[in-house]
């Protein structure tokens, strides 16, 4: 294991060092991140990175492969557009956690801010605590599991995918609806939570798209013919 002390390093120096170590397959521990933005961005190798301390915006974003564990809080857009890999955060995440993620698994131990999983295109986002308003806004694919409450307008304008809420729902967003959760589906969620040390048997409410916004209600003559 290699220890990288981020204190005194510029973001560019820190990321350069992380990419270099990731390419050589080293297990990395980052100390003193000092809530810096853009830490561990754009790493494509399968490797393990432990960050001890809180991070700023876009931590562990644009990833494809690494396992990143952060012991602390994170600012906006943690794990943004991750393709594959795993991110775990022990405390709270800011807004837009897991935005546009396309694969992999992102676990937030504490609460998440607004727009968790916005425009998600795949993968699994898990929030151990509560999530803010517009959770799963315009979500396209994948799954969001929130153990606690969600704020207003959950699943607003979502296309596909599913949002599972263990607590109270502030309100459903436009074109979102609840649907019965299947037994296998529930068992799978509980197993996923257990892998993160959450043993409580939540009763989840499943939110999906009502699919009423898929099409314009009317079309002009030339717009009508489907090829």
């Amino acid at each position: 294991m290699v220890i990288v002390n981020a204190a005194g390093l510029t973001t560019r120096e820190l990321n350069g060092r992380l990419k270099e170590l990731a390419a050589s397959g080293q297990e990395i521990t980052v100390l003193n991140p000092h809530v810096g933005h853009n830490i561990a961005v754009g790493i494509f190798e399968s490797c393990r990175i432990q960050i001890t301390g809180s991070v700023g915006y876009y931590a562990a974003s644009l990833l494809d492969g690494p396992e990143v564990a952060i012991d602390g809080n994170a600012g906006w857009a943690l794990g943004e557009n991750m393709m594959a890999g795993k991110i775990t955060l022990t405390k709270d995440a800011g807004a837009s956690v897991g935005s546009t993620m396309r694969g992999g698994e992102l676990f937030v131990g504490g609460n998440a801010g607004a727009r968790a999983g916005i425009s998600m295109k795949g993968g699994t986002l898990i929030v151990g605590g509560n999530a803010g308003f517009l959770t799963g806004f315009m979500m396209q694919k994948g799954r969001i599991i929130v153990c606690g409450d969600v704020g207003e307008a959950v699943g607003d304008s979502m296309y596909e995918g599913a949002i599972y809420v263990g607590g109270e729902i502030g309100s459903l967003g436009t074109d979102a609806k609840t649907e019965e959760i299947g037994e296998d589906e529930l068992l799978d969620i509980l197993a996923t939570l257990e892998s993160h040390g959450i043993k409580q048997r939540y009763t989840f409410t499943k939110v999906v798209s009502a699919k009423k916004l898929y099409h314009f209600d009317s079309l002009e003559r030339l717009e009508k013919t489907v090829i």
Partner: peptide, 21 residues
């Protein structure tokens, strides 16, 4: 989805620069 105002945009631009060295 991940930024709103110009201050956030500055961080987003830095992110893209970091991703592309």
């Amino acid at each position: 989805p991940d930024w709103l105002g110009p201050d956030d945009l500055a961080v987003k631009i830095e992110q893209l620069r970091e991703a592309t060295d």
